[in-house]
Design a protein around this nucleic acid. Structure first.
Lengths: 247, 247
DNA sequence: CGCGCTGTTGAAACTTGTCAAAGTTTGTGG
DNA sequence: CCACAAACTTTGACAAGTTTCAACAGCGCG
C-alpha cells in the first residue's frame, strides 16, 4: 500500500461539484435537508458543463433529458416563430434552473444561449423524478420552482400587455437589481450582459426604443448608462414608475 | 334488513364524481392507468363545487390548498397590479386545471372567475403530492401539466411581444377553435363567453381595437361575428395571418 | 319595458416603429 | 499591439398602429 494518498480526479471533481458545497444551494435547493438527503441530492448532479459566451446549452426541438442549474454565468432563452420572428422569453442567472419548458413535450421548446462564459450543473430529469418521490422536501421544492416560473411568466405577460415602454424598462431594471442583490452584488450598479436588441425582444420593444428610454432616464437623473454599464441613481423613482410603493 | 336497496346520497355523489367515470379523463389525467391506480386517483377528488356565472373560484392572496379541475364551464384568471390595473392571464375550459400558480407561494396569485355557470373538482394539493409519490404516471403527468403551462405562457408572451392586433386576434380565435375541437365541438362556430374588454385585456389591446379588428375580419369575409357568436369562415386565412402554414 | 352593460364606429392624439446616418465599442487578424 | 471590420448604440425625422375620447346602437336582465 502506498503511503501517499491518491487524489483521484473523479473524487476531486465530485467534491467541487457537490451541491452540499455549493454557495448557491440556498437559491437552488430546499432548505432544511438532513445530511442523508443532501448526500442523495449530491448524487443527482450528473456532470457539469462549461459554455463559452455565445454557445447554446440546448436548442428548440432537441430531446429533453435534463434540467440545468446555472452555477456561474448568464443565459437567455428564446422562442422562434415559424415565420422567423423570435423573442427572448427570459434571462437567467446563477442559481436558476433552465429547461423546465421541455418536460411537457420531452423536447426543448426554446433555445438557451450563454451570454457570458458559464457553467451549469446537469440534472438528469429521470433521476430527479425518482429522487423526488423519496425526498418529500425535494418534491415540494421542485413543484414550487415550476409554479414560480408560471407566476414569473404572468408578471411578464402583465408587463407586455399593459405597460408602456418606460414602465417596462423600469420593471426590467428593478427586477435585475433585485436578483443581483439577492446574489450579494450591488443593487444599484451592474453590467448588462445582453444587447439593447435582446432587452427589446424580451420587453416587446424595438432596440431604438430601449435606447431612447435609457437616454431619457439618464437625462432625468434616474440612472447613469454607459453602454452595458448601468448605475441606478433613483431606485424609488423606478419603482414608482411601475406603480409600486417606492420603498 | 330492508329488501329495498338504499341509495345513499354520498355513494351516488361519489359515483358521479369519480374520475374513472368522467368524460374528461383523457384531457385531465394520464392514460394507461391500472384499475387500482384509477381507484386511488378517484379518491383524490375531495368535493365538487358549482359556481354561478360571475362567481369567484378563488381570489389573489387567499391561501392555496387545492387545485381545481374544470368539469363544465368556462373561467378567466386575472392578475391585479398595485395601481389598480388588471390583466386577464388566461381563459380556461373543461378538463383544464386551475390554481397551479398558487403552489409556489402557498397563496393564490390571481383571481379565477366563472364566465358561465360552472362545476369544478377540488383536488386537495397535499393529497396530490402524496399520491404522485406513489403513482409514477400521475407524478409524471402532473409535471407535464406544469411544464405545458409554462410553454403556453411563453406563447402568450410571444403574442404580446411581437404580434400586431390582427395577428393577436387571429391567434386567439385559432386557439379557441382548436380547444373547442378537441372537446368535440365545432371548430368553426362557437360562443365567446368573454367580453371584448376581457379579450383585449388578455391580448394587450383595448376593447375598441378588438371590436375594430373583428369588424375588419368580417368585412374581409374571414369570420362572421354577431355579438358573442363567432363563425370562422376562413380558418386557413387566420392561420396564415399568424405565420402558420394554412393547413 | 327601460336602464345599464356591451359593442360599434369615427376623429384626433399619442406612443412606438421604421428608416437612416453617424458614433462607439469589441474582437480579430496581421 | 495596432488597425480595421463587425457589431452595437445613439439620435433624428417621419410613418404607422393603437389608444383615447366621444357618440350612439343593441341586447339582455331585472
Amino acid at each position: 500500500m502506498s503511503a501517499i494518498p491518491v487524489l483521484r480526479p473523479v473524487s476531486l471533481d465530485r467534491l467541487r461539484t457537490a451541491c452540499s458545497n455549493c454557495g448557491l444551494k440556498e437559491l437552488c435547493l430546499p432548505v432544511g435537508l438532513t445530511p442523508d438527503e443532501m448526500a442523495r441530492i449530491d448524487s443527482l448532479i450528473g456532470t457539469r458543463r462549461t459554455l463559452k459566451k455565445g454557445a447554446h446549452l440546448y436548442r428548440s426541438g432537441e430531446p429533453f433529458e435534463a434540467l440545468h442549474a446555472i452555477r456561474t454565468g448568464f443565459f437567455k432563452t428564446t422562442v422562434l416563430l415559424e415565420d422567423g420572428r423570435d423573442q427572448v422569453t427570459g434571462f437567467q442567472m446563477s442559481g436558476e434552473l433552465l429547461g423546465l419548458d421541455g418536460i411537457g413535450s420531452e423536447k426543448h421548446t426554446c433555445d438557451a444561449m450563454a451570454l457570458e462564459d458559464s457553467e451549469v450543473c446537469v440534472i438528469p430529469y429521470a433521476s430527479l423524478e425518482t429522487l423526488s418521490r423519496e425526498v418529500h422536501t425535494l418534491q415540494h421544492h421542485f413543484h414550487k420552482v415550476l409554479s414560480r416560473e408560471i407566476v414569473r411568466d404572468h408578471g411578464v405577460m402583465m408587463l407586455l400587455g399593459s405597460m408602456r415602454a418606460e414602465e417596462r424598462l423600469a420593471a426590467f431594471l428593478v427586477n435585475l437589481s433585485q436578483r443581483f442583490t439577492s446574489r450579494g452584488y450591488s443593487p444599484s450598479e451592474f453590467y448588462l450582459r445582453m444587447t439593447r436588441e435582446e432587452i427589446g425582444s424580451y420587453l416587446g420593444l424595438k432596440l431604438e426604443t430601449v435606447s431612447r428610454v435609457f437616454s431619457r432616464f439618464q437625462d432625468e437623473g434616474t440612472i447613469a448608462v454607459q453602454q452595458k454599464h448601468i448605475r441606478i441613481i433613483d431606485i424609488p423613482r423606478l419603482k414608482q414608475l411601475i406603480g409600486q410603493r417606492p420603498c
